[in-house]
Simulated scan of single mutants.
Amino acid sequence: MTVEVRPASEFEDVRALLGPKSPQANVCWCLSYRIPSKLNRELRGPARGEHVAELLRSGAPLGVLAYEDGVPVGWAAVAPRADTSFARNRKIPHVDDLPVWSLWCIRVRPGHRGEGLSHALIAGAVEYARAQGAPAVEAYPLDNGDARVDLTMAYPGLRKNFERAGFAHAADTTSVLSGHPRVLMRLDLR
């Protein structure tokens, strides 16, 4: 299989990874950290996908997609931290005032897990942020040690995968997800 990671630009490809099976279902669409919480609560069902389509049309950086032989099989959300709720999050500290980018969600389609796609997605997200002039990329993965993590709640990624990608522990957080603390990991791109 040939894996290619590139910026998300095609709505149908994004929908294949983030959209619900039923159009009326209320799923995240990776908007929870991207938009103000009031808007996040107001957008229901199909309106969530319509909002993502509008963001894509506007050219807003949403993330990257991994393709295996032309089929979308993985997603990583990455955007300037200032454009996310991480800019105001009280549980995840700011290390400094650099205009860093945040990488906060990694998703690999069932049937394609265990193939190293999360590593390719992290690398692709970093390269995309670098190409957009980001001075650093931050991630907020679970610090689970060797403990198993429910796949539904593993979306922020795992600390060990970010360490393998060259990220360093920059700060502890007070955020806990699925019983595991989250840490702030950072990769300097300067």
Rank of each mutant, 00 (worst) to 15 (best):
T2N: 03
Y128L: 13
T174Q: 11
R159T: 15
I106F: 14
D146M: 09
S118C: 12
R88D: 13
A131L: 08
V64A: 03
E127Y: 00
V52M: 10
P7Y: 04
E42D: 13
R48K: 15
T152I: 07
A77K: 04
P110R: 13
A165R: 03
D69C: 01
V126C: 05
W104D: 15
P72S: 03
R48D: 08
V27E: 07
P46C: 03
K38V: 06
L158K: 10
G116S: 11
S178Y: 11
N161Y: 10
K91P: 04
E4Y: 00
D150I: 07
E50W: 05
A16D: 07
N26D: 15
A47R: 05
R48G: 05
V14F: 07
V5G: 03
T2Y: 00
V137P: 01
A154I: 07
I106M: 12
V64M: 03
V137C: 01
L177F: 11
R15H: 12
I106H: 06
G145V: 09
D146T: 15
S22F: 01
G179I: 12
H94K: 15
A123D: 14
H94G: 06
L55Q: 05
R130D: 14
A25N: 06
G114C: 09
N144V: 14
G124C: 01
L17Y: 09
S22D: 03
V52K: 01
L17K: 03
E42W: 08
D172P: 03
S118Y: 07
R159S: 13
I35T: 06
F11E: 08
V176N: 07
E138M: 07
S22W: 02
E68R: 01
L43K: 02
L189S: 06
P156R: 08
L151Q: 13
A129K: 04
E115H: 00
L55R: 05
L189C: 06
P80D: 01
H119D: 14
P93K: 08
E163M: 09
R57A: 12
L187K: 06
V3C: 00
R113M: 09
G116W: 12
H169E: 13
R48W: 12
V5Y: 02
E50Q: 05
